[in-house]
């Protein structure tokens, strides 16, 4: 008698959310099985790699190997954005508003929003605007962003319990998508989604950010919380967790010491570029296996590896 593998029963599915507008809008979610378990459920939209840019020159903060591919454009966010889309084929762009950080440059909100607007106008792919996780400042910046980018359906992150009312309302008013961010906790993720619903943000406008830990620096916590969110959504009928997930990968991985030590500083760890690329790719793969619908990445070679992985797994 032939072996019949046992099938997991699924009672729910992840909602579809559309990022951006027009021809290049991207649909994410829609999955009715564990990630890549297409032998027992549907995965209509392959997960996406989003490419990140900063709104300020990252010289001095990025290691040489991460900077190298973008050397010619890092001082100009618009040129940088275009390079990602035109040269590297980015399907989603993330702009990190680092210039707004009150602990650093603290650029005024209007100025930050103006640069974001220019980037959004310069590309036709969906844009995610990622703040600095400071409630007051993000509120100011994102309100301005929401208004200036009206009609573009940008996604705004991170929207946290401490600022969801202000930023959520702005997203609602200008029909943008909310990235609901909570610190590695199933219940907190669920609660924030409920709060956003109560505010009037529709379910097809919410993406979950579970908070990302880097490889060797907390990845295991993010991995498991995502598996738990996925289980709750798909097998326990928890409809408040049936949202797609986005992970801000590059920002965490490239902070790790081992991604930044040069080949000379740490010869025992081998070639720095390959090491950094592999650290980024491995983190992204783990998070995709745990349920990420979008991974935000930096290095073009890591991105290529991960895109290849997704293609083979679909």
């Amino acid at each position: 008698m032939a072996f019949e593998p046992a099938k997991q029963k699924y009672t729910g599915s992840i909602r579809e959310v559309v990022l951006g507008t027009g021809d290049k809008a991207v649909k994410i979610g829609g999955r009715s099985a564990y990630p890549f378990y297409t032998f027992e459920g549907e995965m209509p939209n392959p997960p996406k790699v989003a490419m990140e840019i900063w709104d300020k020159d990252p010289n001095g903060e990025w290691s040489e190997v991460a900077l190298e591919p973008f050397k010619d454009v890092v001082s100009d966010p618009v040129a940088w954005a275009k390079k990602c889309v035109e040269e590297y084929g980015a399907e989603i762009l993330v702009i990190q508003t680092k210039s707004a950080d009150p602990n650093a440059e603290n650029k005024p909100a209007v100025e930050v929003a103006e640069v974001v607007k220019k980037v959004v106008d310069a590309v036709d792919v969906p844009v995610v605007v990622w703040g600095v996780a400071n409630h007051e400042k993000d509120t100011e910046v994102m309100r301005a962003v929401a208004e200036k980018c009206a009609g573009k359906n940008v996604a705004i992150a991170p929207v946290e319990e401490g600022d969801y009312k202000q930023i959520g309302a702005a997203c609602l008013g200008y029909k943008h998508t909310v990235v609901a961010s909570s610190p590695i906790d199933v219940n907190l993720a669920k609660q924030l989604n409920i709060l956003l619903n109560n505010l009037g943000v529709p379910e097809n406008k919410i993406v979950i950010d579970p908070t990302t830990g880097g490889l060797g620096y907390g990845l295991e916590y993010t991995y498991s919380v995502m598996e738990r969110i996925t289980q709750a959504a798909l097998t326990q009928g928890d409809d408040k967790l049936q949202q797609p997930i986005i992970c801000n990968v590059a920002n965490e991985v490239w902070k790790c010491k081992e991604a930044n030590q040069t080949t000379e500083e740490a010869p025992e760890l081998g070639d720095q570029k390959t090491r950094g690329v592999m650290m980024e790719a491995v983190t992204a793969i783990d998070l995709l296996l745990a349920g990420a619908d979008v991974v935000v990445m930096r290095h073009p070679e890591a991105i290529q590896l991960v895109k290849g992985f997704i293609e083979k797994m679909m």
């Binding site: 990845l219 295991e220 025992e268």
Partner: peptide, 20 residues
């Protein structure tokens, strides 16, 4: 076996196999 490839995998293995 090359450290720049093996090291990230060793970190991953450590993370996945840590008692949650």
């Amino acid at each position: 076996v090359k450290p720049e490839v093996t090291f990230p995998l060793l970190l991953e293995r450590l993370n996945i196999y840590t008692d949650p």
